Simulated assay, not measured.
Amino acid sequence: MQQPSYVTVLYTGGTIGMQQGPQGLAPASGFERRIRQAQAGMADRTGLPEWRFIELSPPIDSANMQQANWLAMRDSIVDEASRGECMGILLLHGTDTLAYTAAALSFLLIGLPIPVLLSGSMLPAGVEGSDAWDNLFGALRVLQRGIPEECLAAETVPGVHLYFAGKLLPGTGATKFHSEAREAFQVLPRTTKRPVLDAWPARLDYRQRRATVGLAVLPVYPGLQAAQLQAVLGEGVRGLVLECYGSGTGPGDDEAWLRVLREAHDRGVVLLAISQCPSGSVTLETYAAGSRLQQAGLVSGYGMTREAALGKLFALLGCGLSQAEVEYWLPRSLCGEAAGPARQG
């Protein structure tokens, strides 16, 4: 059997390939030619694999990212993997929603036999001081030599990762924390009590197609009214990520607020609790206020980031699992949702 011989570069748009337009920087086609020109001009091209280029048309600003775009990426990646000639995927993406896409693809591609790296840049390629070529060619070198074993989550070898500023970050643990710095992404220390699985259900396998899902994210804040919560949980919403205080608390003495949650849960909405804190974990039973949320139907997301929580809900509901099935799998780690430290690439 022929060994995989190349990396597929999947270009979706983003700052890395943007060019100046009348209204500012905008996504542009024709990025393959610019990459090859940059590679031809490099003094040291050692460690770079052969690669082929695919552009998802039209390339977009990642601020315009939608679930349909995630599904299109998933389809392209699965098609490439099925050829048996590709050793890995480098997906080029804008930074604003890069961590969301990395998390979503982590859950959409469970069991994929080749690694997927996502990268981009804070400044467009060709601009003075840009990080574009360092990130792009650095990611290609990682795919050529293979993901270091210490960076792999046991559940999802080889899995989905970010490569940015010389570091490999887990796809389900990264967050964009700086709007300007070259090291714009990091993995914050979070704890988890979820067991690691030896296997996952066949319906979550990467070959299973998904559908778009009505989802919402809402932070709890002082003064949040039941009517506002009701509006967020309007028609078509099948899952809510509720960003709670601390270890998973909210207005547990507000009966109208709790009633809105109970009614949503009773009609089949999945309610997932995560913490607003950048570190730590949700344990709803610690405080009475959290216990009341749990009694209203919330499931703990433990140490999941907002990006991972949204991506996991999307993948679970999008494959047709019932409310009870989704609530069963949410507390169980499917692809390393417990965030770990960044690793040098």
Rank of each mutant, 00 (worst) to 15 (best):
L10W: 05
G14P: 13
Q20M: 14
A28V: 11
R33N: 04
R34A: 07
A38R: 07
A40D: 13
M42Q: 11
A43M: 08
D44K: 07
R45Q: 13
L56N: 03
P58G: 04
P59Y: 03
P59S: 05
I60C: 00
I60E: 06
I60A: 06
Q66L: 15
Q67M: 12
A68T: 14
N69P: 00
W70C: 08
S82H: 10
I89T: 10
L91K: 02
L91C: 15
L92N: 11
H93T: 06
Y100F: 15
A104R: 03
F107Y: 15
L112Q: 05
L118H: 05
G120A: 05
S130T: 13
S130L: 01
W133K: 05
V142W: 04
E149D: 13
C151T: 11
A153C: 13
A154Y: 00
L162D: 06
L162T: 07
Y163L: 04
F164M: 14
G166K: 09
L168V: 00
S179C: 10
E183C: 04
Q186G: 15
L188R: 09
R190M: 09
R194C: 12
P195M: 10
D198W: 03
A199S: 15
D205Q: 10
R207V: 13
Q208L: 10
V213G: 08
G214S: 07
P219F: 02
Q228P: 00
G234Q: 02
E235G: 11
E235M: 09
V237S: 09
G239L: 03
G248P: 01
G250Y: 00
A264W: 00
L271Q: 08
L272G: 10
L272V: 12
L272D: 09
A273N: 04
G280M: 12
V282P: 12
E285D: 14
G290K: 05
S291T: 13
Q295T: 11
G297P: 07
G301D: 10
Y302R: 13
M304Y: 12
T305N: 11
A309E: 09
G311N: 09
L313D: 07
G318R: 05
L321H: 05
Y328S: 00
Y328T: 09
W329K: 07
L330V: 11
P331W: 03
G336N: 09
P341G: 06
A342N: 01
R343F: 00
